[in-house]
Amino acid sequence: MSYVITGTCVNDGACVDVCPVDCIHPTPAEPGFLGADMLYIDPDVCVSCNACAEACPVGAVMDEKSLPPELLRYRDINAEFSRLRKDS
């Protein structure tokens, strides 16, 4: 169970500020931030506390259970980037 960032993301980073487990990357302090198309939630670390969803100014974060079909792919995209980041 995890939260998922979808394509509406504008890289505002408000989610990063409120995440209690630092599972959202790249953070504004990380080198990859400026080249990022969006931010990603690591599903292995996320505790589904909803703080990011409340903080997001554009409603880009959703509980994976409530993703509409056309946004389901973002579940894989969040997980895939997170794996790649941890492998590096």
Binding site: G35, D37, E80
Partner: peptide
């Protein structure tokens, strides 16, 4: 690379 930019290009 394995950073966010490289991931975006791959995707």
């Amino acid at each position: 690379g394995r950073d966010a930019r490289a991931y975006a290009v791959q995707l």
